[in-house]
Design a protein around this nucleic acid. Structure first.
Lengths: 217, 217
DNA sequence: AGTTGTGAAGGTCTTCACAGCG
DNA sequence: CGCTGTGAAGACCTTCACAACT
């Protein structure tokens, strides 16, 4: 694989864990960029990311050869490559469905905008919330969800509705054409294979800690 | 391995993915319990959890033999076993550090109490917030964090401070004796090996979706 | 000399497939 | 007969170790 390899037909399926690490590397590189440093070795990236230098080089090798032997990686170049690989060179349009506390917390989250994720609108079924604003984001009637998806073509739907309504909303937005969902509902969601679904499940994380605390040697 | 196997000296290290699935199985079993169903097969559990029946049986087999051949699993019995395995048979004491929007969303999250996680207090460094309540949870001065950890012995600290303060807080609470942390900061945290750290990183999840949307066939 | 890029080895997790038991 | 429990096989991911290059 060389530097001209197109990202649009990857030879190998890329592991989720690899993508998560690339995301982490990018964050460190941006730190380095801000501090004006110009090169970095796989060893330094590894130390920050809690992994090994071999892992860093392997992760990057799936996408090309970005380093210089004996020197390391150019910080701005590698950051640029990672942004390109992760698809961060464009705007991603986001709808938030569910204007409760978590929806509100996300609406004001600066990380979205910083990375090119634009929140177009939020949706709710409560008349108390419809028509109001959530940190500058308009809350609309969930009745109009399908219509608005067709009109405004969001790329990603962030789901912050109660668990018992989550699957219903997934079915609706998938039918309307959405192909990526980030859910905060504590339920297993089912969607067609061509829809990317990520779930952040607080209950599961807490139980993971409970397990870890319980099963110590 | 038989039903008397002690959970306190597991033969094998249990994979994180296994623990996450156990957590999911428990949720389905509670659903089944509420509907009054008495037995369930590995196949049914698998369908709900988006996995395979072999995976379900393998996951459970690390902890014992809970099923009846030809029949399946007793719903209440298996639910009880999973609660025991996950360490949910007791109260877990939680401090929230960071009383911003995410901290507030967590303070009101019902899932905590339902599973035996009791939020004792929240901490912040802003005088606007100290002394106020966050959905019934008192907000205290972060100055008193170490003193209060020693007094009230929380099992888990939930971290919802800005990224640039997260590592500092980790160092403080670890030094004060905390052995489990759930962080919402978008940074890599470093802690000793005997401290369980889970990180929920929104930025990473979004970038995972961006990658998935970008690298389709 | 120093660091990358990568086949090969090693380790972990998932799936298979069937013996064993109810 | 049906479904579990589990070794063995297979797939996947990480680590090793070194040739290749600057």
């Amino acid at each position: 694989m060389n530097e001209f390899t197109s990202l649009t037909h990857l030879v190998k399926r890329i592991a989720d864990s690899t993508v998560r690490r690339l995301s982490a590397y990018l964050r460190f590189l941006e730190d380095f960029e801000n501090r004006g440093l110009s090169t970095i070795s796989s060893e330094e990236l590894a130390k920050r990311g809690g992994t090994t230098s071999a892992q860093v080089r392997k992760d990057l090798s799936f996408f090309g050869s970005f380093g210089k032997r004996g020197l390391g990686y150019s910080v701005p170049e590698l950051a640029g490559r990672l942004r390109e690989i992760l698809g961060l060179g464009r705007e991603w349009r986001v709808f938030i469905v569910g204007a409760g506390k978590i929806g509100a917390a996300l609406a004001q989250y600066r990380g979205f905008r910083q990375r090119g994720f634009t929140i177009l609108a939020a949706y709710d079924n409560s008349s108390d919330k419809i028509g109001k604003k959530l940190d500058g984001v308009a809350v609309r009637d969930i009745e109009h969800l399908e219509r608005d998806i067709q009109r405004e073509k969001p790329d990603i739907v962030v789901l912050t509705v109660p668990g018992d309504q989550a699957q219903k909303v997934v079915d609706r937005v998938v039918k309307a054409g959405v192909r990526a969902i980030l859910s905060f509902a504590p339920t297993q969601l089912h969607a067609p294979a061509d829809v990317a679904v990520k779930t952040v499940n607080m209950a599961m994380e807490l139980e993971g800690l409970s397990f870890a605390l319980t099963n110590r040697d």
